[in-house]
Design a binder for these strands. Sequence first.
DNA 1: AATGAATGAGGGTTCATTCAT
DNA 2: TATGAATGAACCCTCATTCAT
Lengths: 205, 205, 205, 205
Amino acid sequence: MSVAEPDLRISDQGTAPARSRADTRRRLIDAAIDLFAHQGLHGATSARIARAAGVATGTFYLHFRDKQALFEAIVQGALAELRGRLRRAIDGAGADARAQVRARTAELVAFAEDNGRLIRVLFGRRQEAGALAEDVLDALIPGIEESLRARAAAGEVSAALHPGVAAQAIAAMSSRVLAWWVEDPTRATRDELIETLCRMHPVHR
Amino acid sequence: MSVAEPDLRISDQGTAPARSRADTRRRLIDAAIDLFAHQGLHGATSARIARAAGVATGTFYLHFRDKQALFEAIVQGALAELRGRLRRAIDGAGADARAQVRARTAELVAFAEDNGRLIRVLFGRRQEAGALAEDVLDALIPGIEESLRARAAAGEVSAALHPGVAAQAIAAMSSRVLAWWVEDPTRATRDELIETLCRMHPVHR
Amino acid sequence: MSVAEPDLRISDQGTAPARSRADTRRRLIDAAIDLFAHQGLHGATSARIARAAGVATGTFYLHFRDKQALFEAIVQGALAELRGRLRRAIDGAGADARAQVRARTAELVAFAEDNGRLIRVLFGRRQEAGALAEDVLDALIPGIEESLRARAAAGEVSAALHPGVAAQAIAAMSSRVLAWWVEDPTRATRDELIETLCRMHPVHR
Amino acid sequence: MSVAEPDLRISDQGTAPARSRADTRRRLIDAAIDLFAHQGLHGATSARIARAAGVATGTFYLHFRDKQALFEAIVQGALAELRGRLRRAIDGAGADARAQVRARTAELVAFAEDNGRLIRVLFGRRQEAGALAEDVLDALIPGIEESLRARAAAGEVSAALHPGVAAQAIAAMSSRVLAWWVEDPTRATRDELIETLCRMHPVHR
DNA sequence: AATGAATGAGGGTTCATTCAT
DNA sequence: TATGAATGAACCCTCATTCAT
């Protein structure tokens, strides 16, 4: 799994046992995402996650206070990587609003391709992980809304749009479309996906 | 609960025991939606639903084969009413594409106002009912997609949009925005909501 | 079902509603044996028995105090018919001990052929009705034992046999062999069955 | 409980936790047989078995997939010990057919004395464990039948006997007589029991 | 730190029986 | 007498979490 676990850097600098500890933690997170993706939240009991990670049941609780803490670690890891990628993509896109939206959208699609299991777990059709998905979207939406306000002020999007409503709409369409697409990437080409998402963004009107 | 259970009218004309049976069923559905809304799917055990409906645990299973069947009854009831309302709204909107989208959107908002608990359960923030929501969206999306194709053929929406992708996007934004709004209707005025949703629909470009 | 319900004669002479009552009772017993035979005791809930008999659930309890009473009615009916047939068979067999055993055995086999479902239910491989079977055997064993004592006194069976033990043995072998045979009558011919059972009876030594 | 659990010896040599696990398993089996004997299969719920074994309900399912698996463990344990004892008894009995039958019968009686609870559970009057008993008998009957065929070929039993029928008969009489006797060993002396069972075996004609 | 057996509350579901109609 | 909806105790089984080793 390529979702970043930023906290691990500290551990990585520790002793050998500490490195092993970080490995175990990563394996647990990875196993959890796998189980979520393949069997749904239902199949992801702490015992099964531990087993899939190759550790004993009790070891799970040496790394996470409880299952909720594991969920949060997954979400935080996903958010940390996603935010980094989006920031870098936008930074490289220049000042044009449409170009920025396109760069952001393309990076989102790339992230989904790299993290298919995670996207399916968070936003997929059998999304049993609704609460987790909310945490991710809630973390992203304020930024979207703020950006919309700035663009409205700059005349790049219509002032008739309610930024809060539009931010919810953009977050929802992006997450669902990505989940729908990673489930079966033949449903649309990569370019159709990006083009359609960009055209539905208010900045493209 | 105002979600229609259309079939019950027939039962309502039956014998007294039959009426009582229909009443019990309706109370169970109503109690289930309440519990889903307030405690999430987690809190909605069959025993608690029965208790909230004022019947014994076993009575639940006289009316629904299992909990899944209750979920489906809720979804079917919601879909039946929603479809009827949307059809009537569009029928009264004339031939103009934008007018149809506006009529449809306004009716959606009205439905959400009338069925706040249900919307929160299906699409809300703590959406533990992901699978149910999927059933609703899956049922609606083909119609949206077909409509987009027709409008693309008529030149009313851009041919550069991928109808399948756009249909997913429209369904996702509508459901989430409504859930976000019914959670706290002061977040935007009714008109801001409708205006923003309409403007984000491809037909308004 | 051909198991006698001797008590019904009285009812049969009653009014029309009384005859109907007797019919319902017989239908319930018949349905119960059918369900036992096809689905085991597990599948024979009072509601299912009633449904199979074409009456409402509550009607079951107008005819039997509880399920145990139904079981007893089945056993009593079977015993009443079986005893009558065995008595008549022996009465027609003359005084010879071996001839009597043979007549009794032949009649047992005939009874099993006429009442396959019942035999399977009571003594069959998936005998979930162990308690019922015990009641039948318990009712028959004293007679077998007494008969063995008489034959031992007459020198027709070895005095070295313990009559109580032998009676248990005869009852057990007869019931099981019949159940095994009715399950699949091609396992042995009728004559092989009778011959073997007779030869294993102490009187044939 | 003296029914062998042969595989446990390996575990017994394992680590302390492993020994504890084997102990718990044995206690569950022991408690189950006790409950079956005293309250019938009906009274032997998984919760009560666990409680009688001094463990929590959930522990039951750490050791047996479900109740059926516990039943099978009981049957397998009983069969393993019984077969071993019968084999050794026959091996020590020489070549004479009657001596072998007597040795086998004596060993059966000794086994019943050592495993009274188990015999009562499997074959006793309130035999609710019919399916378990069938498994035991089904496992033993082919050997009995084959032995009868060999003895018929050797002229030691009558060729007029149908081996399949006779094997069913022998198994049924043995199991029931033993269950009847262990219920109240004063019903017959040990020797009367053995003598009568032997005399009813076809080889003693 | 790691193990994995143990815990026990709680979930979904069934069914013998009752009772208002 | 017949109906069938309702009852609720009881069952089987799961699983998040703990703790002795």
